[in-house]
Amino acid sequence: MHDGHDHAHPLRPDRDEHPGYYQVMATALRELLLEKNVFTAEELRRQMEKMDERGPHLGARVVARAWADAAFKTRLLADGPAACRELGVDIGPTRLVVLENRPELHNLVVCTLCSCYPRALLGLPPDWYKSVNYRRRAVREPRAVLEEFGTRIPDGTAVRVHDSTAELRYIVLPMRPAGAEGLDEAALAALVTRDAMIGVALPKAP
């Protein structure tokens, strides 16, 4: 309880004592790989750390550069992975497709089958992205879903949903907000949110 408040917050129970089937299998696999010297505990830790360091700040850098540099934007739309490498953003083997929002077209990304997501540029997907509700409804009634996120798409703008069902991964290149003309890339990147790159929101206003 907080001081001065008389309500209790629910506690999330610790689940460490009773791991499920897949947790047991994952632990067994990890222990075997370590025991057989496929990799070391330090290498495993470093890889986990590296994965956790990935996040929307990487995608935001890419978007900000595209806003600031028209030639870069052209290269980004033509070959996403190569353009990211130019910025020193290593997206590994991800086959990235960059979807450009335009006044007449708004893009929205979903994975109806599971939770495919451009992790190399955005990190781990938010819980709602993996929810059955979002996955089911983003394809069925995207405009209603967008409105629930507080995003109203004008009638003259088409909505295009991208269902990441297989090998490609998608990131939305939002439109640069009005009033952002004089900003440098760092200031532009601060306007770019994770949700804007999934397509459920628009970038922040400067």
Binding site: R143, A158, V159, R160, V161, H162, D163, T165, A166
Partner: peptide
């Protein structure tokens, strides 16, 4: 809208 679309692999 009639112009709305969906891309799927």
């Amino acid at each position: 809208r009639p112009e709305d679309s969906i891309d799927i692999e």
